[in-house]
Amino acid sequence: MSKLVIKYVWELPVRVTHWLNMVAILTLTATGLLIAHPMTLAGSPSQFVMGWIRFVHFVAAYMFAISLASRIYWSLVGNRYSSWRTFFPYLNPEDRQQMWATLRYYTFLSRKLPHVVGHNSVAAAAYSLVFLLYLGMICTGFALYSEHAPGGFYALTFGQLRHLFSNQTLRLLHHCFMWLLLGFAIQHVYSCWLMDIKERGGIISSMFSGYKSVEED
C-alpha cells in the first residue's frame, strides 16, 4: 500500500535556469522580431531605439547562453531527475517502454498514465531536441554577432560557421529555429497544464517550489 509523499524533485539550479530560459526566450523573440522586421520607431536620428533593441537582444543572448551552460553543468552534478541521462530515454529499455505508454496516452489510444517522478520520458526526449535547437540558436546567433568584429574571439570560434553556411543561411536558420521554439513553447505550456490536471502531482507549482506530490516507492 503506497501513499502520497512530498518529494523534492527540481533542485534550485534547475528551476532558476528554467525561468531564466523562459525570460530570455521571450525577450529574444520580441527583440529578434523587431530586428528582423524593423519599424520606424524613432522621430529623430539622434535617438537610439534600434540600438537599445539590439543591446537588449545581445544581453538576453548572453544570459541565455550562460543559463544553458549552467544547466548542462548541473546535468552532470545534479540529482537523478536533472541528470543528462534522463534526456535520452530511448537508450534504455525500461524508459522506452514508458515512452511508448506515454505516447499511447497522448494519442488517446490508452487511458493509462505512466507513473513518473521527474520528467516523463516523452517530454525528456523532446527536451533533448530542444537543447539541440538551443545550441543551434546560440551558435548561429554568435556567428552573426561575430560579423561586427572580424578577427575577434567570436569570429575565430562561432564565426567559422560562415565558411560552412552563408550569412543568409545562418540568418534563416536563426529565424526558423525561433519559430520551432515558439511551437515548442505552446506545446510545453499545454502539456504541463494537461499533466497538472491528469497526474495531480502539482507539476506546474513544482517548477516554482521544487516539490512534487508523488507516491512512495
Partner: peptide
C-alpha cells in the same frame, strides 16, 4: 519563413486546443 513559422505556431496551438 515568417508565414511558415506563423502557420506552424497557429497549427500547434490548434492541435493542442483540440487535444
Amino acid at each position: 519563413a515568417d508565414k511558415i513559422g506563423l502557420g506552424l505556431a497557429v497549427g500547434t496551438a490548434a492541435i493542442f486546443a483540440g487535444h
